[in-house]
Design a protein around this nucleic acid. Structure first.
Length: 727
DNA sequence: GCTGATGAAGG
DNA sequence: TCCCTTCATCAGCG
């Protein structure tokens, strides 16, 4: 059959084996530049789900075929004959094909992958979906950019399914009538337990269900299913044709190639999975359930009625009755305000919300997905965030445990993951990147001095610290002659026990080789959050030297939050709201920030000017961010920082994968969380590789600020990771 | 069943 | 002018 999408006609045919595909391919006079391969599956679990039908496309020919093991193995020859394989979110098809061929290596045998999600990311404007930007899902993209009628084939499939369901239902209705029951009565009894169902009625129901099982896509007649399967592949083909020129025009080929290099490594990481301690989760789940029940009873008693903590309207009713005023919101801020005033109910609702979220997200869900083989598999979306970062569901596991009313730890989400492994994360990498960007403007003194002895001189030779060369930069943590970190570590432990030291402590001990010329004192890294805070406090008329250290600490935590907010482009009003401080205090924070880090403010303004001039900006790797609406330009200052770090991490992942392969190591990357890479290292004999990997991660010749990676280790659970000193 | 609002979590 | 995200639940709509 022929299908026309977006004015282009494709030939679609069903084949049982790959022979006809290969024949057609060998008849092509010109070798196609790429091919498309897409599968339909019975689920989404990357190990459990199985494909049942697939589509393979090249040169406007689509072959729909049953995805048997043999067909998939033969398909590999066709794919590699062409040499370039595209799909939309192709990692998923890699997993599905590995599942059906029972060969985890199958996807790694494909010569080269491309992903139209990646092409879209590099062609779309840099607006997140939340802010009205384009979705990265294939259907809306096809609707908007390819052909709005393309969905007609999916509609036909859905219509067939609902017609079939309705017809089957009619049979059941007739059968129930024989027992004197209506469908409505039966469903209520079945779902809500309104009345007992006689055995013979149940028996009739099960006989019917057996004979008429719930129809799935597999049951759809081929002539309806075939175009539906084909049209996704056609959409991908058209998308490549349309987006590739945009990527070239925007000079994003090199970013694209790096992303394509990374694709198989991401597949390998996803494929690893992390072993789950299911017993622990079940045990913690029971404790959490009991605690939730106790709190629900307490909330019911306090409110005088039954309600759930997600029922915002009901909670508003309760507070309207209590205070005579209907709250605009029942959010955390409102509840905290009430709780601070001594309201026990508000406190209980807040705790319950957190507990219920944790129970469903970190216990029930992990138990469900790990049921298959005891492992937690997570997808790492390589293209969704506009900045270039990864996204995925494993990126937000709480760092701290949850405690019950007696202060006893009842659940720590990270305790559920058991693995001998290393966790290497970059230290404050985005702030270091921000410092790097100010160096193009001469360097922000305070921010740069947080990470290197910027404009400091050597205590012995008097030479100025050289941040412009790799060799000069490597000396950022140089110590005075005779001083050593090992000695310091010993001394520190004798004085402070288990508390970890930071490099700033080494500097404060006077061991650094660098001297601040203005003061003649040894260089000590700036504490950027304290810097903003102290300046703001003085602006507010406080004398920090005379303040209670406890108050300073409180204000510093506000200063820290403010610094991040301000880096993202936040203003006074929003800061006052988020930090829960007065507008005057927020304004003081802002002035304190500007005084402390004037060149960051200059940098932000320059980005906006650049956007006005060109309509785009490009990060350190050359990834561009295009925006057409000027009021959004302020976002780009952060895109550049976030995206430069993300692209750096992506390139590091490729280098690390190469290092692991070259050294024939069994260790594997299993996850990355923004600025951290996690490694499973089963064999202690491979521990030697970790310092090498750390050095790969710290090797950033283009960043003028030293990049530092810190190593943690655990041979039991994620929650137990502890820092390892690698000198 | 889908969508938007709301709120929990990560960097 | 608060950046990038995921996931769960509830309420309202068709």
């Amino acid at each position: 059959m022929e299908i026309t999408i977006g004015g282009e006609t494709y030939n679609v045919q069903y084949v049982e084996t790959m022979r006809e595909v290969w024949d057609a391919l060998s008849k092509e006079r010109v070798k196609p530049k790429w091919c498309v391969y897409d599968v339909e599956t019975d689920g989404l679990h990357i190990k459990k789900a199985r494909p049942y039908i697939g589509a393979f496309l090249f040169a406007k020919k689509v072959f729909v075929f049953p995805t048997t093991k043999e067909n998939c193995n033969h398909l590999l020859y066709c794919i590699n004959h062409i040499g370039m394989l595209y799909n939309h979110n192709i990692n998923f098809d890699m997993h599905m094909t590995a599942n059906i061929t029972e060969d985890d290596e199958w996807p790694l045998k494909v010569k080269r992958y491309g992903d139209t999600m990646g092409l879209c990311r590099l062609s779309f404007e840099a607006i997140s979906e939340r802010d009205g930007g384009d979705s990265l899902r294939l259907k809306p993209i096809m609707d908007k950019y390819i052909d709005p009628t393309a969905s007609r084939f999916e509609k036909a499939v859905k219509k067939w399914l609902s017609d079939k369901k309705a017809a089957d239902r009619k049979v059941l209705i007739a059968l129930l009538r024989g027992h004197g029951w209506t469908m409505k009565r039966f469903e209520e009894a079945l779902n809500k337990g309104t009345e007992p169902i006689p055995e013979e009625v149940m028996k009739t129901f099960w006989t019917w269900r057996n004979e008429y099982p719930e129809p799935t896509y597999k049951d759809v007649p081929l002539e309806i299913l075939m175009p539906y399967v084909a049209v996704d592949a056609i959409g991908v083909d058209l998308l490549v044709k349309k987006a590739l020129p945009v990527v070239y025009h925007r000079k994003q080929q090199h970013i694209m190639e790096t992303e394509w290099d990374l694709l198989p490594h991401v597949y390998e990481m996803e494929r690893q999975g992390i072993p789950v301690d299911r017993e622990y989760l079940m045990d913690a789940g029971e404790k959490l359930d009991a605690y939730i029940k106790r709190l629900q009873a307490k909330a019911e008693e306090l409110a005088g009625r039954k309600f759930s903590v997600g029922q915002h309207a009901v909670i508003k009713d309760i507070y309207e009755e209590r205070t005579g005023e209907r709250p605009d919101s029942t959010d955390k801020k409102f509840l905290k305000f009430m709780a601070d005033g001594g309201d026990e109910l508000a406190k209980t609702i807040s705790t319950l919300r957190r507990l219920e979220k944790w129970k469903s997200t970190y216990i029930d869900r992990i138990l469900e997905v790990s049921e298959y083989d005891g492992k937690f598999y997570t997808l790492m979306n390589q293209f969704n965030p506009v900045s270039g970062r990864f996204s995925g569901d494993a990126q937000q596991f709480p760092k701290d445990p949850i405690k019950d009313e007696n202060g006893e730890v009842i659940f720590h989400p990270r305790r559920a993951f058991k693995m001998r492994g290393y966790y290497i994360d970059f230290s404050q990498v985005e702030l270091r990147m921000q410092a790097h960007y100010t160096l193009y403007l001469g360097g922000d003194l305070n921010l740069c001095r947080a990470y290197m002895p910027f404009k400091c001189v050597h205590y012995k030779t008097g030479e100025e610290y050289d941040y412009k060369t790799v060799e000069g930069r490597a000396r950022w943590n140089e110590l005075k002659e005779g001083a050593s970190l090992q000695e310091f570590d010993k001394m520190w432990k004798a004085q402070h026990g288990d508390k970890e030291w930071e490099f700033a402590d080494v500097c404060r001990a006077g061991l650094t080789a660098w001297v601040v010329p203005e003061t003649g004192e040894p260089w000590t890294p700036t504490d950027v959050h304290t810097m903003t805070t102290l300046k703001a406090l003085r602006i507010m008329g406080f004398v920090p030297e005379e303040m209670d250290p406890k108050d300073i600490k409180w204000w510093r935590s506000k200063g820290k939050t403010f610094n991040f907010m301000r880096n993202y482009g936040g203003g006074d009003a929003k800061a006052a709201e988020t930090l829960d401080i007065s507008l005057e205090a927020a304004k003081a924070m802002n002035r304190g920030y500007s005084e402390a880090f004037p060149l960051v403010v200059t940098y932000q303004n320059m980005v906006i000017n650049e956007m006005r001039r060109k309509g785009y900006c490009q990060n350190m790797s050359g990834r561009r961010y295009y925006l057409s609406e000027p009021w959004k330009f302020y976002k780009v200052a952060n895109y550049l920082i976030q995206g430069s770090c993300a692209d750096d991490l992506k390139k590091k992942m490729i280098r690390i994968a190469k290092f692991i392969k070259e050294n024939n190591l069994k260790m594997r990357m299993v996850l990355c969380v923004h600025d951290e890479i996690q490694f499973r290292v089963d064999d202690p004999a491979e521990d030697w590789a970790i310092p090498h990997i750390k050095r790969i991660m710290e090797d950033c010749p283009d960043i003028m600020v030293p990049i530092v990676a810190e190593v943690d280790f655990s041979d039991t659970y994620w929650s137990e990771k502890r820092s390892v000193l690698l000198v």
